[in-house]
Design a protein around this nucleic acid. Structure first.
Lengths: 143, 143
DNA sequence: GCCACTAGTCAGATAATCTGTCTATATTGG
DNA sequence: CCAATATAGACAGATTATCTGACTAGTGGC
């Protein structure tokens, strides 16, 4: 009866791209056009106390050079600031500025709005179901 | 009781990246290391009869120049061939070669293997559930 | 206090996208 | 049936986001 053909990987990719397009288009319309998907690991992994570039890089699974490039771009556009690490003279701590926090909050807001639109279509229970299933599909069970 | 915090967008991104890493690492180990995620829309949208670059570009939501770049790379590595379109003297038809079909089949095989691993963990019913939910999360209900 | 390790930068390469321009062919309206 | 317009793709060049390799400066164990 049901079409059981489309693979999970493809569905994941399509869903993620649609979600990302929606969220970042809304973010751009909110006045943060200079934040692109590539910058999101910075917003995501910088905590309240700031983080070192090398730690951001590891969490984002990229080289420190690549992370440094992203951090520099966000620093130039005023979303993060860099301060000396008091505990390590080699390191610098990346912090979100007020503008950076605002951008992160607006992005989260748009993302939550998408969740609400989905909940309006399929119901809150199904959204929670999806949340659980996605968490299980991501776990550490790969070769 | 339940942690209801992690947003769907983030979960989608994490799941997709894990899935893609797994599938393309396996593809590389199978001897197709020169096929990268960026090439996947070509494998995906070229049908049996071949497709024009401009149509591939539209389906992949990119410019024809970008798609042309991807097609050229795959042509040089022998995964696709280009023939004149009999119905349109301006156009060329992109076809998968035997090697290209093989690569696509191997990639699909690895993707299905991941689905089976997931089914072994959470059950086939839950996988079907995920499939349906992802299809609903991707539909044309965005602004 | 030396020596191995680590944080970050500098330099350069590559991949994957974009915009703009151009040519050749197709299509369509008078 | 042809002239105007539209389309397919190629060419040139720029940008973004990643990589590797080499270097500098600071850390910390012994």
């Amino acid at each position: 009866m049901h079409e059981n053909n489309i693979r999970i990987g493809r569905l994941l990719g399509d869903a993620y791209e649609a979600w990302q397009r929606g969220a970042y288009a809304a973010l751009a319309e909110s006045g943060f056009a200079d934040i692109r998907p590539a910058h999101s690991p910075v917003l995501r992994f910088v905590g309240e106390q700031g983080a070192r570039v090398v730690d951001l890089a590891e969490q984002a699974r990229m080289t420190k050079q690549s992370m440094s490039y992203l951090v520099s771009a966000l620093e130039q556009s005023g979303y993060v600031s860099l301060t000396a690490d008091p505990d390590d003279g080699r390191a610098r701590l990346v912090h979100l500025t007020a503008k950076g926090n605002q951008a992160r909050d607006v992005l989260i807001g748009h993302s939550l709005a998408l969740e609400e639109r989905l909940a309006a279509r399929i119901g809150k229970d199904r959204v929670e179901d999806l949340r659980e299933l996605l968490a299980e599909a991501t776990g550490p069970w790969l070769p």
